[in-house]
């Protein structure tokens, strides 16, 4: 199976509470670039679908990773190559010349060239939190979509049974490939992904894998191509324009109550919610 995975770098999500707003603009100065966690889960999913869990060095399919951004975003791609992706593509663009719709249209053009059986994306990037690229891409390609995947079972690499994490529970769909799947966080649990290669009894370590030092060295020799954005999407007009930003109002400091009796009393007489 050939899988295309899109990756985005984001300002360190573990320190998102340090985001500042200066003169109406969001500033992430001082925050390290990190791969978007949901995209890392998409990559891990792609690797699991194209290997035998017991011997992860023997690649049994192809995983192509793609990112959009300036030269320095190749760091994100090299890291993905080091964890096992086979090939990388950087679509050259300045960060502020992109929005989700443009990325989806460019990805659609890239899919037409690369012809993967499956596109895996994170369900959302944790900076803009828009949750849209997978769905937009599916529509542009005329492919089925399975969003918020918490489990995937490959059926002969012809179809996938996807457990979607929806508001009311887990919604199961069978999608015939090619398709677009966006992944949620529980996709990286030990038994969430079942490929055609890995025995059903195999348990993965919880979470995403880390690259070994040797693999980091070897990744420098893996192919990384550069593509111009305009070659993929002639219309580079943005559909969303950000005007300004503000910090949310902070909640006023609460109080510590001394006892359960005190708490019940305050909820009744002060907050009047009981």
């Amino acid at each position: 199976m050939k899988i295309l995975v899109s990756l985005k770098r984001v300002a360190d999500p573990d320190n998102a509470n340090k985001v500042k707003v200066t003169s109406g603009k969001i500033e992430t100065t001082g925050l390290e670039w990190k791969p978007n966690p949901f995209d890392e889960y998409a990559l891990e999913t792609a690797l699991r679908l194209t290997e035998n869990g017991a011997n992860t060095k023997a690649r049994l399919g192809e995983v192509v990773v793609v990112t959009f951004g300036p030269k320095e975003t190749e760091t994100t791609l090299r890291a993905a190559l080091a964890t096992g992706a086979d090939r990388a593509i950087r679509v050259d663009a300045a960060d502020d010349t992109l929005d989700g719709d443009l990325v989806a249209r460019a990805l659609a053009a890239l899919v037409a060239k690369e012809k993967p059986d499956l596109v895996l994306v994170g369900k959302q990037a944790v900076d803009g939190d828009a949750n849209q690229v997978g769905q937009l891409l599916a529509e542009y390609l005329g492919w089925p979509q399975a969003t918020f995947a918490g489990s995937i079972q490959s059926e002969g690499d012809k179809s996938l049974v996807v457990g979607r994490e929806v508001d009311g529970g887990t919604l199961k769909l069978r999608v015939t490939l090619p398709a677009v799947v966006s992944v949620d966080l529980r996709i990286v649990a030990p038994k969430s992904v079942r490929s055609v290669h890995t025995p059903a009894t195999h348990n993965y370590a919880d979470g995403v894998r880390f690259a070994a030092l040797m693999a980091i060295m070897a990744a420098k020799k893996k192919p990384l191509a550069e593509v111009k954005l305009a070659d993929l999407a002639p219309d580079t007009a943005l559909r969303i324009k950000y005007l300004r930003a503000e910090l949310p109002p902070s909640r006023k400091a609460g109080i510590k109550v001394k006892s359960v009796e005190d708490l019940v009393q305050k909820l009744k007489t002060e907050a009047k919610v009981l």
Partner: peptide, 23 residues
């Protein structure tokens, strides 16, 4: 902005050539 709305809305936007803003 439920799991249903977020699943379907971008697909509708793409059909309409519309921009989409979430949440």
């Amino acid at each position: 902005a439920s799991s249903f709305g977020k699943d379907v809305a971008p697909r509708v936007a793409a059909k309409l050539g519309a921009g989409y803003a979430a949440d």
